[in-house]
Amino acid sequence: MGFYERFAEFQLDVLQEVGNIGSGNAATALSILLNKPVNMKVPRVRMLPFEEISELFGGAEEVVVAVFSRVEGDAPGNLFFIISLESARHLLQILVGFPAEETGRGQVFTEMEVSALCEIGNILSGSYLSSLGDFTGLNFVPSVPAIALDMIGAVLSHGVMMYGAMGEHALFIETFFSQGQHAVEGHYFFIPDPDSYAKLFEALGVPLA
Protein backbone atom coordinates (compact mmCIF):
# COMPACT_ATOMS: atom_id res chain seq x y z
CA MET A 1 0.00 0.00 0.00
CA GLY A 2 1.70 3.17 -1.18
CA PHE A 3 1.69 6.57 0.31
CA TYR A 4 -0.78 7.99 -2.11
CA GLU A 5 -3.49 5.48 -2.23
CA ARG A 6 -4.44 7.26 0.95
CA PHE A 7 -5.44 10.33 -1.03
CA ALA A 8 -9.11 10.65 -1.74
CA GLU A 9 -10.47 12.20 -4.92
CA PHE A 10 -11.57 15.39 -3.18
CA GLN A 11 -8.12 15.81 -1.70
CA LEU A 12 -6.61 15.70 -5.17
CA ASP A 13 -9.14 18.36 -6.15
CA VAL A 14 -7.88 20.50 -3.32
CA LEU A 15 -4.29 20.11 -4.50
CA GLN A 16 -5.42 21.08 -7.98
CA GLU A 17 -6.91 24.21 -6.49
CA VAL A 18 -3.60 24.89 -4.77
CA GLY A 19 -2.01 24.83 -8.22
CA ASN A 20 -4.75 26.98 -9.62
CA ILE A 21 -4.39 29.72 -7.04
CA GLY A 22 -0.62 29.79 -7.27
CA SER A 23 -0.19 29.68 -10.99
CA GLY A 24 -3.17 31.94 -11.63
CA ASN A 25 -1.39 34.70 -9.80
CA ALA A 26 1.94 33.88 -11.43
CA ALA A 27 0.31 33.97 -14.88
CA THR A 28 -1.11 37.39 -14.05
CA ALA A 29 2.36 38.54 -13.02
CA LEU A 30 3.80 37.26 -16.29
CA SER A 31 1.03 38.98 -18.21
CA ILE A 32 1.85 42.28 -16.51
CA LEU A 33 5.56 41.81 -17.20
CA LEU A 34 4.94 41.10 -20.87
CA ASN A 35 2.01 43.45 -21.22
CA LYS A 36 0.33 40.66 -23.19
CA PRO A 37 -2.40 38.17 -22.34
CA VAL A 38 -1.18 34.89 -20.89
CA ASN A 39 -3.24 31.72 -21.08
CA MET A 40 -3.18 29.03 -18.50
CA LYS A 41 -4.49 25.48 -18.47
CA VAL A 42 -6.26 23.85 -15.57
CA PRO A 43 -3.53 22.42 -13.34
CA ARG A 44 -2.92 18.71 -13.33
CA VAL A 45 -2.19 16.80 -10.18
CA ARG A 46 -0.27 13.66 -10.98
CA MET A 47 1.42 10.88 -9.11
CA LEU A 48 4.26 10.01 -11.38
CA PRO A 49 6.36 6.90 -11.00
CA PHE A 50 10.02 7.91 -10.82
CA GLU A 51 10.79 6.25 -14.12
CA GLU A 52 8.24 8.41 -15.92
CA ILE A 53 9.57 11.70 -14.62
CA SER A 54 12.28 11.57 -17.23
CA GLU A 55 9.71 11.09 -19.95
CA LEU A 56 7.98 14.42 -19.38
CA PHE A 57 8.21 16.79 -22.32
CA GLY A 58 10.45 15.58 -25.11
CA GLY A 59 12.19 12.97 -22.97
CA ALA A 60 14.78 13.17 -20.25
CA GLU A 61 17.46 14.65 -22.47
CA GLU A 62 15.39 17.61 -23.63
CA VAL A 63 17.30 20.68 -22.54
CA VAL A 64 15.23 23.31 -20.75
CA VAL A 65 15.62 26.44 -18.69
CA ALA A 66 14.65 25.66 -15.10
CA VAL A 67 14.40 28.11 -12.24
CA PHE A 68 14.23 26.28 -8.96
CA SER A 69 13.17 27.58 -5.57
CA ARG A 70 13.37 25.51 -2.45
CA VAL A 71 10.35 26.51 -0.39
CA GLU A 72 10.65 26.45 3.38
CA GLY A 73 8.11 27.55 5.96
CA ASP A 74 4.91 25.84 7.13
CA ALA A 75 4.56 23.48 4.17
CA PRO A 76 7.97 22.95 2.52
CA GLY A 77 8.35 21.83 -1.07
CA ASN A 78 10.08 22.47 -4.37
CA LEU A 79 8.90 24.91 -7.00
CA PHE A 80 10.11 24.82 -10.60
CA PHE A 81 9.47 27.28 -13.40
CA ILE A 82 10.42 25.51 -16.61
CA ILE A 83 10.48 26.82 -20.18
CA SER A 84 12.00 25.63 -23.42
CA LEU A 85 15.15 27.27 -24.77
CA GLU A 86 13.12 28.79 -27.59
CA SER A 87 10.57 30.24 -25.19
CA ALA A 88 13.38 31.63 -23.06
CA ARG A 89 14.76 33.40 -26.09
CA HIS A 90 11.35 34.86 -26.94
CA LEU A 91 10.88 35.91 -23.35
CA LEU A 92 14.17 37.79 -23.40
CA GLN A 93 13.27 39.48 -26.66
CA ILE A 94 9.86 40.63 -25.47
CA LEU A 95 10.88 41.57 -21.97
CA VAL A 96 14.41 42.82 -22.01
CA GLY A 97 14.57 43.76 -25.67
CA PHE A 98 17.59 41.61 -26.47
CA PRO A 99 17.48 41.46 -30.27
CA ALA A 100 16.83 38.04 -31.77
CA GLU A 101 20.13 37.79 -33.60
CA GLU A 102 22.05 38.50 -30.41
CA THR A 103 20.28 36.01 -28.20
CA GLY A 104 22.34 33.33 -29.80
CA ARG A 105 21.71 29.95 -31.25
CA GLY A 106 21.48 26.56 -29.69
CA GLN A 107 21.91 26.51 -25.98
CA VAL A 108 24.10 29.53 -25.64
CA PHE A 109 22.95 32.35 -23.43
CA THR A 110 25.06 35.16 -22.05
CA GLU A 111 25.54 35.59 -18.34
CA MET A 112 23.27 38.63 -18.45
CA GLU A 113 20.52 36.65 -20.17
CA VAL A 114 20.76 33.80 -17.70
CA SER A 115 20.57 36.28 -14.88
CA ALA A 116 17.50 37.94 -16.44
CA LEU A 117 15.78 34.56 -16.84
CA CYS A 118 16.53 33.70 -13.23
CA GLU A 119 15.02 37.00 -12.12
CA ILE A 120 11.89 36.39 -14.20
CA GLY A 121 11.58 32.98 -12.57
CA ASN A 122 12.07 34.59 -9.21
CA ILE A 123 9.26 37.09 -9.75
CA LEU A 124 6.88 34.39 -10.97
CA SER A 125 7.69 31.95 -8.19
CA GLY A 126 7.27 34.74 -5.69
CA SER A 127 3.79 35.52 -6.98
CA TYR A 128 2.91 31.83 -7.04
CA LEU A 129 3.84 31.45 -3.41
CA SER A 130 2.44 34.72 -2.14
CA SER A 131 -1.05 33.93 -3.42
CA LEU A 132 -0.74 30.42 -2.07
CA GLY A 133 0.19 31.92 1.28
CA ASP A 134 -2.78 34.31 1.23
CA PHE A 135 -5.14 31.52 0.29
CA THR A 136 -4.00 29.00 2.87
CA GLY A 137 -2.85 31.31 5.64
CA LEU A 138 0.41 29.36 5.64
CA ASN A 139 3.84 30.85 5.54
CA PHE A 140 5.93 29.99 2.45
CA VAL A 141 9.52 31.16 2.37
CA PRO A 142 11.26 30.68 -0.99
CA SER A 143 15.04 30.39 -1.19
CA VAL A 144 16.98 32.64 -3.50
CA PRO A 145 16.27 30.96 -6.84
CA ALA A 146 18.83 28.91 -8.72
CA ILE A 147 18.82 28.41 -12.46
CA ALA A 148 19.93 25.50 -14.60
CA LEU A 149 19.98 25.03 -18.37
CA ASP A 150 20.02 21.30 -18.53
CA MET A 151 18.24 18.02 -19.23
CA ILE A 152 14.69 18.03 -17.92
CA GLY A 153 15.12 14.64 -16.27
CA ALA A 154 18.22 15.71 -14.37
CA VAL A 155 16.54 18.91 -13.23
CA LEU A 156 13.22 17.51 -12.08
CA SER A 157 14.69 14.46 -10.40
CA HIS A 158 16.35 16.89 -8.04
CA GLY A 159 12.91 17.98 -6.85
CA VAL A 160 11.64 14.54 -5.90
CA MET A 161 14.42 13.30 -3.61
CA MET A 162 12.20 13.69 -0.58
CA TYR A 163 9.89 11.08 -2.08
CA GLY A 164 12.61 8.49 -2.32
CA ALA A 165 12.00 7.38 1.24
CA MET A 166 8.24 7.09 0.74
CA GLY A 167 7.70 4.90 -2.29
CA GLU A 168 8.05 4.86 -6.03
CA HIS A 169 6.08 7.94 -7.00
CA ALA A 170 6.22 11.68 -6.59
CA LEU A 171 3.32 14.09 -6.66
CA PHE A 172 3.45 16.97 -9.12
CA ILE A 173 1.10 19.92 -9.27
CA GLU A 174 1.68 21.05 -12.83
CA THR A 175 0.35 24.07 -14.71
CA PHE A 176 0.92 24.84 -18.36
CA PHE A 177 0.83 28.44 -19.55
CA SER A 178 1.38 30.11 -22.88
CA GLN A 179 1.55 33.48 -24.52
CA GLY A 180 0.78 33.95 -28.18
CA GLN A 181 1.11 31.19 -30.75
CA HIS A 182 3.81 29.08 -29.08
CA ALA A 183 5.90 32.20 -28.51
CA VAL A 184 6.32 31.58 -24.82
CA GLU A 185 5.24 28.31 -23.27
CA GLY A 186 6.16 26.90 -19.95
CA HIS A 187 5.28 24.94 -16.88
CA TYR A 188 5.15 25.41 -13.18
CA PHE A 189 5.79 22.36 -11.08
CA PHE A 190 5.04 22.53 -7.40
CA ILE A 191 6.21 19.43 -5.55
CA PRO A 192 5.23 19.66 -1.89
CA ASP A 193 7.33 17.54 0.44
CA PRO A 194 5.52 14.35 1.51
CA ASP A 195 5.11 15.74 4.99
CA SER A 196 3.47 18.94 3.75
CA TYR A 197 0.15 17.51 2.59
CA ALA A 198 -1.32 17.25 6.03
CA LYS A 199 -0.57 20.93 6.60
CA LEU A 200 -2.02 21.99 3.26
CA PHE A 201 -5.18 19.97 3.86
CA GLU A 202 -5.54 21.22 7.37
CA ALA A 203 -5.05 24.85 6.34
CA LEU A 204 -7.78 24.45 3.72
CA GLY A 205 -10.22 22.76 6.07
CA VAL A 206 -10.07 19.39 4.37
CA PRO A 207 -10.37 16.37 6.62
CA LEU A 208 -7.38 14.04 6.59
CA ALA A 209 -8.17 10.65 5.13
Binding site: I53, A154, L156, H158
Partner: peptide
Protein backbone atom coordinates in the same frame (compact mmCIF):
# COMPACT_ATOMS: atom_id res chain seq x y z
CA UNK B 1 23.25 -4.57 -26.69
CA UNK B 2 23.12 -1.32 -24.81
CA UNK B 3 22.07 -0.48 -21.29
CA UNK B 4 20.86 3.07 -21.13
CA UNK B 5 19.66 5.57 -18.56
CA UNK B 6 18.81 9.22 -19.08
CA UNK B 7 18.59 12.40 -17.07
CA UNK B 8 21.03 11.67 -14.27
CA UNK B 9 21.19 14.72 -12.03
CA UNK B 10 22.12 14.06 -8.46
CA UNK B 11 21.36 10.39 -9.13
Amino acid sequence: GILKTTGLGSC
